[in-house]
Amino acid sequence: MTYEELLTATALNDEQVIVMTAENRALVRNLPAVLGKRFIDTGITEQTMIGAAAGLALRNRIPVVHALAAFLTMRSFEFVRTDLGIANLPVKLSGFIPGFLSDANGPTHQAIEDISIMRGIPNVTVFAPADEDDLVKMLPQIWQSPNPAYIRINTRKTGYEHEPFELGKAEVICTGSNVTILTYGLMFEQALIAVDILKSEGFSVGLVNMRSLKPVDEEVILKTVATSNLIVTLEDHFLTGGLYTIVAEVLLKHQLTAKVLPIALNEKWFKPALLPDVLQHTGFTGKQIAERILGYQTMHLQPSVLTHAFSE
């Protein structure tokens, strides 16, 4: 099932659902003919769209709104904060081409601080599916939640079949004692590649698809820290405010420390190009990620850890 098919079925089954867009119909091209007046295009007016969605939510509607992630989170930030967050209204924000998925676009269209700013708003929940299968498994619960939500929309197909989704819970793909990669969204694809490479080198490797970044699965983070020598946070987002920061907050809350290798964008927007070239240029291919982890292991961990890895 695709995102549009899921949204169509949901809206036809529930007249409370309103589909809105700020002239960004890529995900919902067929909805106007199906929903009629329950499809609203406000034009390139993200702030107006959020204000209108808040009004509809106050009238017992569930608006699912669409715009480019950069504009949905930054241009309309104050409206999301004031109209949705403070009022705790069930408007669902579908952010299109977040992170590296905005590959051919420049800095103005790159949403690589969206997780940070959205999770900072009280009541707003934040989610980042790994691919389209993950997306359609996550959305029904997110749409049914009474809280406002921001979703990093990802309709790429990876061929991986994900487990059923539970709000606030991560998906443990595999466990490992030497290193565990925590990731979300698009980078899940590259993490799978990196895991295979590291395993071929003799390492015991774990992988966790975080899925929900607010609320975050503290239990899986704490368990990973207790069972794995190195934690890698992997994200197509700025270092500040994303998963690395989330992990740090959880560890400090529980008065714990851990060896953590963050792989993220460090206060620098990426050079526009086709996605494979963006990943290669920024060092985010599965192969480059694995090489970086291997390098860190060699430099920072005790020889006994490396011996254990290669003897497994």
Results as ranks from 00 to 15, higher is better:
205 V>M: 07
169 K>H: 13
196 D>I: 03
118 M>S: 13
180 T>V: 00
182 L>Q: 01
185 G>M: 04
163 E>P: 03
185 G>L: 04
196 D>Q: 14
155 T>I: 15
176 G>P: 09
135 L>R: 12
129 P>L: 12
192 L>C: 13
207 L>Q: 07
92 K>S: 04
100 F>R: 09
134 D>T: 10
143 W>K: 06
191 A>Q: 03
110 Q>P: 01
178 N>A: 11
160 Y>K: 06
170 A>G: 01
190 Q>F: 01
199 K>F: 09
118 M>C: 14
86 I>R: 14
83 D>I: 04
114 D>C: 04
180 T>W: 00
161 E>I: 03
116 S>E: 14
159 G>Q: 02
153 I>W: 11
172 V>Q: 11
194 A>C: 03
140 P>T: 02
139 L>W: 13
183 T>N: 02
139 L>P: 10
97 I>D: 08
193 I>G: 01
136 V>Q: 11
130 A>H: 03
112 I>K: 08
121 I>M: 11
115 I>W: 10
109 H>R: 09
203 F>K: 03
152 R>M: 02
92 K>F: 06
142 I>S: 07
107 P>S: 12
134 D>I: 10
181 I>H: 00
163 E>Q: 15
109 H>N: 09
102 S>M: 05
118 M>V: 11
215 P>G: 10
147 N>G: 05
146 P>Y: 13
179 V>R: 07
153 I>S: 08
210 M>E: 03
109 H>C: 05
111 A>Y: 04
205 V>L: 07
83 D>V: 09
138 M>P: 05
133 D>G: 14
150 Y>E: 04
88 N>Q: 14
174 C>G: 05
131 D>I: 11
141 Q>R: 14
177 S>R: 15
158 T>A: 03
